[in-house]
């Protein structure tokens, strides 16, 4: 699903975010991306969604080599990827339903299709009853579930999660993890950048550890840190 070769990213201010990262993430995998702040986790996600271009190396997502992706192809490429963030990135003036439907509106999907898919995905994340409230009226966990619903409503092959539990209490975090596992079970590849030691250690999935932009550890059923 994701293949990188000697992937490097150096920002204009000279900061080396990623250095010679070579990785292969298979379709259907559930991968944790761990490491201290500034290790390059978020940069890796930005490169995968083609929000940034690598300074060197190649990155292939699906079958697309992102280095050669033309700017006008980017929106269509992104429709196959779901992304969730620590700060949810919801539109405060839209209802839960509208926030989720938004991802389908941009694809010009037919209205009937939109309402059917949004209803199904809100059912999955347990927010069907709250479809017509605005994000401000929801708890952090509920907001993250809306964000997750929006990310998967397009049925993406790949779901990227950048610190999705960063603002949530442990119980709520497990609720989100259960959903991510469910989505993964249905065939979507999940890549999650996290600082949450407990979640990583309990789930025992593949762990890729980054430090100063380099892969320092890649274990199939890893833990947060070796110590």
């Amino acid at each position: 699903m994701i293949q990188t070769h000697n992937l490097s990213k150096v920002y204009a201010n000279g900061v080396v975010a990623l250095a010679n990262v070579t990785l292969y993430i298979e379709k259907g995998e559930f991968v944790f991306l761990v490491g201290p702040s500034g290790a390059g986790k978020s940069t890796f996600i930005k490169l995968v969604i083609r929000s940034e271009l690598p300074t060197e190396g190649t990155i292939i997502v699906g079958r697309r080599n992102l280095v050669y992706l033309r700017p006008r192809e980017i929106p269509f490429f992104r429709r196959n990827i779901g992304v969730i963030f620590q700060d949810y990135k919801l539109l405060p003036n839209k209802t839960v339903y509208e926030n989720v439907a938004f991802a389908l509106e941009v694809t010009e999907a037919p209205p009937r299709e939109i309402s059917r898919q949004v209803a199904a995905v809100l059912e999955l994340v347990g927010l069907a009853a709250r479809a017509h409230v605005r994000p401000a009226e929801l708890s952090g966990g509920e907001q993250q579930r809306v964000s997750l619903a929006r990310a998967i409503v397009n049925r993406p092959h790949l779901l990227l999660a950048d610190e999705p539990t960063g603002n949530l209490d442990p119980d709520t975090s497990w609720g989100i993890m259960d959903l991510l596992l469910e989505i993964n079970k249905r065939g979507t590849t999940v890549v999650m950048a996290t600082h949450n030691k407990e979640i990583v250690n309990r789930m025992r999935r593949r762990v890729i550890a980054l430090e100063a932009g380099r892969v320092v550890r890649d274990e199939p059923k890893g833990v947060y840190d070796e110590t």
Binding site: R72, P75, F76, R78, R79, K89, L90, L91, F102, V106
Partner: peptide, 16 residues
């Protein structure tokens, strides 16, 4: 700008 950022994220074309 946040709206624009999210639109780009979910795959909206520049014209959309």
């Amino acid at each position: 700008r946040r709206e624009i950022e999210i639109m780009k994220l979910v795959g909206a074309t520049d014209w959309f």
